[in-house]
């Protein structure tokens, strides 16, 4: 559909930073089913992700955008195509990535703080300083005082904030999020949007997130990649020309509505 060069020329250069963080080259996935049937889940997805950029993958439910995200995360392997991070080919989970799941995915037997520290435990990097960092992150997301509670004592929104802290605790360079706020109500979601943007601003982490909410994609992203129906491929890239930090008033601007229209047309749900 769209050539990969078209995007690399837009968001990265427009923002004045030229460093490429990740390159996706004709990534595709075919699921084999019993009886010679197969599902083409993903087809020829190509683009480059600039360092520190935030790209929203927007598409209808079940279209294969999650499959793409999971391939990037190394949780699934591509049938063809390549993922290159900082010049190196990726096949398998990457130490500098963090994945945020649709559900908070917390361990109910660990306290909030221990949940956040889990990635560091796996890496053998629990130190006084890293525990301090975990506490700072929990403060940042407004969970001060909940360090020693168990997940079952928290609301859904609080749990998802813990999951976000867990993803950020080890200085990941790329944050991959699979509909991270889908299980939250509208107000909580808007809160989380600003929180995510704030964290990105402070840490400079690159972010790719999957969503089926048009407004969420526009509000958060440098660039929205609109996926077509299955087999999923990128139908259109939309650069969102709003400055950061973004404010909720932006949602009611004419330009925001125009972006929504553009995304709607690309999704085939608006004329």
């Amino acid at each position: 559909m769209m050539s990969k060069d078209a995007l690399s020329a837009t968001p990265t250069e427009a923002a004045g930073s030229n460093t490429v963080f990740a390159r996706f080259d004709r990534v595709g996935k075919i699921f084999k089913l019993p009886g010679d049937r197969q599902i083409d889940a993903l087809e020829d997805v190509s683009f480059t992700l600039g360092r520190g950029k935030l790209v929203g993958l927007l598409g209808p439910s079940g279209c294969g955008k999650t499959t793409f995200l999971r391939i990037v995360a190394g949780l699934e392997t591509a049938t063809y195509g390549t993922v290159t991070i900082e010049g190196k080919l990726v096949n398998g989970p990457h130490p500098n990535f963090a994945f945020v799941f649709q559900q908070a995915n917390l361990m109910n037997w660990r306290t909030v703080l221990k949940n956040v520290l889990f990635p560091l435990e796996i890496r053998g990097e629990v130190t006084r300083a890293s525990i301090e960092r975990a506490r700072d992150l929990l403060n940042l997301v407004g969970l001060h005082g909940f360090e020693d509670r168990y997940p079952s004592e928290l609301s859904g929104g609080m749990q998802q904030r813990v999951a976000l802290c867990r993803a950020l605790v080890y200085d990941a360079k790329l944050l991959l999020m699979d509909e991270p706020f889908g299980a939250l109500d509208e107000l909580k979601r808007m809160e989380m949007h600003d929180l995510l943007l704030d964290i990105r601003l402070r840490t400079g982490v690159s972010v790719m997130f999957v969503t089926h909410s048009i407004s969420e994609a526009i509000y958060l992203s440098d660039t929205v990649a609109v996926f077509s129906k299955r087999p999923a491929t990128i139908a259109r890239f939309i650069d969102i020309d709003f400055p950061y930090p973004r404010e909720n008033a932006m949602r009611y601007e004419m330009k925001f509505t125009e972006y929504e229209h553009e995304a709607g047309r690309a999704l085939g749900i608006a004329r």
Binding site: L75, P95, A98, F101, Q103, N105, M107, P119, I122
Partner: peptide
């Protein structure tokens, strides 16, 4: 064991 937790561990290369 919840699949999500296993995938979390996998993504962290446990």
């Amino acid at each position: 064991t919840p699949k999500g937790l296993l995938e979390l561990a996998q993504s962290l290369r446990a």
